[in-house]
Design a protein around this nucleic acid. Sequence first.
RNA 1: CGGGGAGUAGCGCAGGCCGGUAGCGCAUCUGGUUUGGGACCAGGGGGUCGCAGGUUCGAAUCCUGUCUCCCCGACCA
Length: 491
Amino acid sequence: MSILTSKETDYAQWYNDLILKSGLAENSAVRGCMVIKPYGFALWENMRDELDKRFKETGHQNAYFPIFIPKSFLSKEAAHVEGFAKECAVVTHYRLKNDPDGKGVIVDPEAKLEEELIVRPTSETIIWNTYKNWIQSYRDLPILVNQWANVVRWEMRTRLFLRTAEFLWQEGHTAHATKEEAIEETEKMLDVYASFCEEYMALPVIKGVKTANERFAGAEETYCIEALMQDGKALQAGTSHFLGQNFAKAFDVKFADKDNKMEYVWATSWGVSTRLIGGLVMAHSDDQGLVLPPKIAPLHVVIVPIYSKDVAAREKIDQYAKNLVKELRSKGIRVKYDDDDTTRPGWKFAEYELKGVPVRVALGARDMEQNVAEVARRDTKEKMSLSLDNLAISIQELLDTIQQNMYNKALQYRSEHYTKVDSWEAFQEVLKTKGGFVAAHWDGTSETEEKIKELTKATIRCIPLNNPPEEGVCVFTGAPSKQRVLFAVAY
RNA sequence: CGGGGAGUAGCGCAGGCCGGUAGCGCAUCUGGUUUGGGACCAGGGGGUCGCAGGUUCGAAUCCUGUCUCCCCGACCA
């Protein structure tokens, strides 16, 4: 019996059921804000730890900046305020008092702030205000800083992980002496994100740059990685922005170069968020529950004993299992021996499938006699009988196989949902029938982009970085075009 | 902010039209039998029916107001 709405029936409902039932997160008392439950947070910790390692390997350090931003800061960069003003939470008072007319508390009108504080929707402004004091000379550059933080964007409509009013993320903010170096940094971090997604999340992504319409508010160029979900919709999985000198100019951050000339500093910022968890879920999971790639799974292996009345057999199973646990742990494999006798094996099987544990080992008296264990993989649901000799090694290899298989499967799905089209009819038809990425010529204007969005809901996800030049005509207006861009309906 | 739907036990719901002891499934607790795909039997506990008024001898049910949540749109990582 399945407890999830099937993907086929209602993809959105399936996603929601899955997040709730698998125990990743739930809605909270605050509209639009979620509670990330221990299992979901364990996923985030694994992602965070690996990303953090990669940031440090590329020379970055962590720091922390305030959650509050003075209102005046946000307005210093014109495009930036335009982009975020509509979704900011504002702190206006600093004190409550007992309601003189009854029970409860009210905001103390005496405690109004001189200048309102914005709960950060992103930290460019407070950070660049800080960098101003950190940078005088070219010797102070580059500054390569990352922060792990929460941010708040007051979204109209929210969905667990994909779009919440508050979310967790990391934001890197770097300062450089030259434009070239800043662009190099922007691209380097995009590569870090892309390889992380592909190697750890088993999530193939397309690297590209955004059109002016989709660009980050305040950026000169927004690089992105785009992933494809199982319903044919695209998900922006990470962004890396070349900010030019916009923030340096807004916050007057100059440095003396080697020739003692004053120059504005060049900037980048880049981030990924808990949204990635939503992408991970939507890219791999099925009607039985989560399917997690081993490298990210909180638990790699669960061992389920099949007990019987035979006490001697039970002890034998326990003993073997405990040794196996020890051996797997010594190989760095996260394993749980579920010998809880209050639930039965069938219940556990279903439960761990729901939770997406990559490998399940069942051990019963019958197996022990034959010197085997039943090993089931979550990604293919295949069950096999493996020898107890060298079982830990077999499992270790199986985990690698699963990781690779999940990536291949996602990649194959994406290949099958990547369609080149050359006519407006085909464009609409592909979006309607199979979805996915549509590679089409575009005349380069925002007007056409907007019009296409209006008519099909599809937006330009990116102009791929490895795009071959190709003469063609815009699929919508027929105007000349020199390359294809990727359209998709997106989350 | 527009359009739809819903608030009744921890979760999912019925009851409402036609007012009269608040019910069902799951979960939970106790005891027992079980254990190879979400076990079974027996017994038990748990509710100011979103909130505030009103009508009435009597309101989950009728009336008025109000709040909240969910879904679809506009906005967005």
